[in-house]
Design a protein around this nucleic acid. Structure first.
Length: 487
RNA sequence: GGCCCCAUCGUUUAGUCGGUUAGGACACGGCCCUUUCAAGGCCGGAAUACGAGUUCGAGUCUCGUUGGGGUCACCA
């Protein structure tokens, strides 16, 4: 049994989109599950599309998610270099080897001739087809003469003309394609550089990649890859083609359409662990009903054969729910650390942060929810709808609220122990004295202190969070407001 | 258009040898709990794209139809 070696081979062309990240995760897990090797290879041969800083984004994203690579541009390894542009010298010799084996050939056709060919195909009412293999059987002497004359050329792969080529994909199973469908594809371009397909096969072989894990847009070119392996006499890898992550039923998720990238999601307050967990489940499922996985659990349970065949639509609602699950599972202390910067965006005054966060934790799905929820602390709305005081269950309204707040005010003024228990104990007994339910008495307090209906905690908790001074001030103002309104 | 691939609740998935009240999660609705809103607990509505065939029996096997995705570059 050979060692399992997988690779993630992104092009540094910008942001990391979530489909890409998922592919990286699947490759990472496949390696780690088998105690194998995970390799990072940067495919930067399309210099025109390279974006500055994109490599760092790839490094950082992988690192943030704990996906460490054993071999790569920065850490080295026995099969480097791991940046494709630094390997350019390597490929031509392999292509020439193929020519010598009769599996490839020099082609001197000019761009003009190819265009003309396509024109005539079009004129004949055919769809534009394959290269007509004009140079495939050129006499050896002619080839050598034209090479010596310095004529520009490409090297093309010689495809079989009849029969079928098949391969096995770990998730799609056995796939066959008629050889007549295969074009004599270019291996080496006229500038001497390899095409992506060719470089990929050679690199994967040289790096001893055992599992080729990639998007299923490569499914239809895989027969060509396989033929290349066969032509060289190399051992073929196990193919794992992953279906795409969709934005909706018709469109792939892509940065070009303005869809959220991994970085965008993090900025919006999603936890990277939650994003990764969600991605794991998008198109893959383990045996049981477990949904939240630590990295160790992911590695343990991972089986690439359980990847789904059909495309999956990215559902932000489910991501929110998973994110909420991660927040809920945190300790209060961990949550305070994460929440503090978001809270401090809108709260500059002193508060009981611990108590606030304790109340916020089960109410927070993503961190960016926070500012809106705590806005009232520094900026309570001057005007708010007195209808807020209406509560069907407790049978309260503006008028009962006035009564309740008037009863509460002296108790709050007299309260010396301004803690959660202290304030609650100062207020709650009043309900008994008045012969009313706790909610009748305390519901209005929350409205008076926040001016909104949804608050992080009940009335007495809010009082403790914002402090005695502000509490008394707001209760007095509410009494004024209610007195004026109900007069 | 040719070729390849795919098809279970709104979404994501379970369903490995044909026999299931077709299960879970998110979302949605209801109830409970409750000092608001949440969280939590309980309950509920919701799917095998369609049509044939094989079979005592089909989500599961075969064929077709429809729908969808991918691919057909000197791009990666």
């Amino acid at each position: 049994m050979n060692e399992v070696r997988t690779r993630f081979a992104p092009s540094p062309t910008g942001y990391m989109h979530v489909g890409n990240l998922r592919t990286a995760l699947y490759a990472y897990l496949t390696a780690r599950h088998e105690n194998g090797v995970f390799i990072l290879r940067i495919e930067d041969t399309d210099q025109a599309r390279i974006v500055d800083g994109a490599v760092d984004i790839i490094y950082n994203t992988l690192k943030e998610n704990g996906m460490t690579w054993d071999e790569g541009p920065d850490v080295g390894g026995d099969y480097g270099p791991y940046v494709q542009s630094e390997r350019m010298g390597l490929f031509k010799d392999y292509a020439v080897e193929l020519v010598e084996k009769g599996k490839a050939y020099y082609c001197f056709c000019t761009e003009e001739r190819l265009n003309a060919l396509h024109e005539s195909q079009r004129a004949a009412g055919e769809t534009v087809g394959h290269y007509d293999r004009c140079c495939r059987e050129l006499p050896k002497e002619e080839v050598e003469r034209r090479l010596a004359a310095g004529e520009p050329y490409v090297i093309r792969q010689k495809m079989p003309t009849e029969g079928v080529t098949s391969f096995d994909d770990l998730i799609y199973g056995h796939i066959e394609v008629d050889n007549s469908e295969l074009e004599d594809q270019i291996l080496i371009k006229s500038d001497g550089m390899p095409t992506y397909n060719f470089a990929n096969v050679v690199d994967d072989h040289l790096m001893k990649i055992s599992h080729v894990i990639r998007g299923n847009e490569y499914l239809s070119s895989t027969p060509k890859y396989n033929l290349l392996y066969e032509a060289f006499g190399w051992e073929k890898p196990i193919y794992v083609h992953c279906p795409p992550v969709m934005k909706d039923a018709h469109n792939k998720l892509s940065k070009r359409n303005g869809d959220a990238s991994y970085q965008d999601l993090v900025q919006q307050g999603y936890l990277s662990a939650a994003i990764l967990n969600y991605l794991l489940l998008l198109g893959w499922s383990p045996k049981g009903d477990q949904e939240i996985f630590s990295r160790e659990e992911m590695i343990e349970k991972w089986n690439p054969a359980w990847i789904n065949k059909s495309p999956a639509i990215f559902d932000i609602q489910k991501l929110r729910a998973i994110n909420a699950g991660y927040i809920n599972r945190m300790t209060d202390e961990e949550f305070v650390v994460l929440a503090r910067p978001w809270i401090e965006k809108v709260v500059k005054t002193p508060i009981d942060l611990q108590l606030l966060c304790m109340n916020l934790k089960p109410r927070c799905e993503i961190l960016s929810d926070l500012p809106a929820r705590v806005m009232f602390i520094d900026n309570m709305p001057e005007e708010y709808d007195l209808e807020f005081y209406k509560n069907k269950k407790f049978k309260t309204d503006a008028s009962t609220a006035l009564t309740a707040l008037k009863a509460l005010l002296p108790a709050l003024e007299a309260c010396e122990d301004w803690t959660r228990e202290g304030v609650y104990n100062a207020c709650a007994p009043l309900a008994q004295e008045l012969g009313v339910k706790g909610g009748w008495l305390l519901y209005p307090l929350g409205i008076a202190l926040a001016g909104t209906q949804a608050t992080p905690g009940g009335g007495t908790d809010l009082a403790v969070i914002i402090g005695k001074e502000r509490t008394l001030d707001r209760v007095r103002k509410a009494i004024e407001k209610l007195t004026a309104a109900t007069a």
